[in-house]
């Protein structure tokens, strides 16, 4: 059974339709990537899974519909989200940002904090620093750390490398891989940087104007000349 499955999903912002008949699935313990250009609907797709848009169609987690759940209930059911703009709490310390993430999983605060500090030692060193004074890379780490504090079994990560230096992108990639391998998390990332996505994901979905245009393994998609030119470089 798929861990996450979207069936004929349509998403709307008011009257504007942002996703059209999107279907995809994620197997347990797998990393998949959704690649596409700016405005393709990648963030909308993740927002929709989190119950933050108006949708039709089905969103199933372990076979159960989560369409009618509130965002807080979806988090409680085991979905963590690190959004593109981080949405951190700028005048709270790194530690307090992480502790907000523990709002629904208070029994595992210490163990989750230990995991976050092991993955991102910098966050322990700077635990008393306000996030408004941090670099983009550090804020991405706090965002991922906060998502981990929710004890997720499924982690949604929106454009984890956008605006970050190559060295930091490498650190984020390593951390995501460890989350999957060591913590057993199932991960969905969205990326404009298809090459970064390929280093992590076992399968990819290509999204264009809210429509899934292609899907498959990296090797399968590399065989498509048009897609290779558009997304994966010559």
């Amino acid at each position: 059974m798929a861990f996450l499955e979207l069936k004929s999903l349509n998403a709307f912002y008011g009257k504007a339709q942002a996703l059209h008949d999107v279907s995809l699935h994620v197997k347990p313990g797998e990393i998949i990537a959704i690649v596409g250009a700016n405005g393709a609907g990648k963030s909308t797709l993740l927002d929709s899974v989190m119950g933050m848009t108006t949708t039709t169609g089905d969103i199933l987690m372990e076979g159960k519909s989560i369409n009618q759940l509130s965002t807080a209930e979806i988090v409680q059911s085991g979905v963590g989200y690190a959004p593109e703009r981080f949405n951190l709490f700028p005048y709270m310390s790194v530690r307090d940002n992480l502790l907000v993430g523990a709002y629904t999983s208070r029994e595992s605060i210490e163990s989750n904090l230990a995991i976050v500090h092991k993955l991102f030692p910098k966050l322990k060193e700077r635990q008393h620093q306000e996030t408004s004074t941090q670099s983009g890379g550090e804020r991405q780490m706090v965002s991922l750390g906060r998502a981990l504090m929710t004890s997720p079994r499924l982690l949604l990560v929106d454009e984890p490398t956008i605006g970050l230096a190559p060295k930091v992108c490498g650190e984020i990639a390593v951390a995501l891989k460890r989350m999957c391998d060591e913590l057993g998390a199932t991960i969905v990332i969205t990326e404009q940087n298809a090459n970064f996505a390929m280093t992590l994901a076992s399968r990819l979905y290509v999204l264009e104007s809210g429509v899934v245009k292609a899907e498959g393994t990296v090797d399968e998609l590399r065989g498509d000349a048009r897609l290779t030119e558009a997304y994966f470089g010559a």
């Binding site: 807080a72 989200y81 709490f89 709270m92 907000v100 709002y103 504090m149």
Partner: peptide, 26 residues
Amino acid sequence: THIGRAMQAVSMDNKGAAISGVDPDK
């Protein structure tokens, strides 16, 4: 406290609070 941090979180970023499991409405 957790509820106090949640109040701060909602005051700073509603979406950030929601994806942390905090229900801004409550």
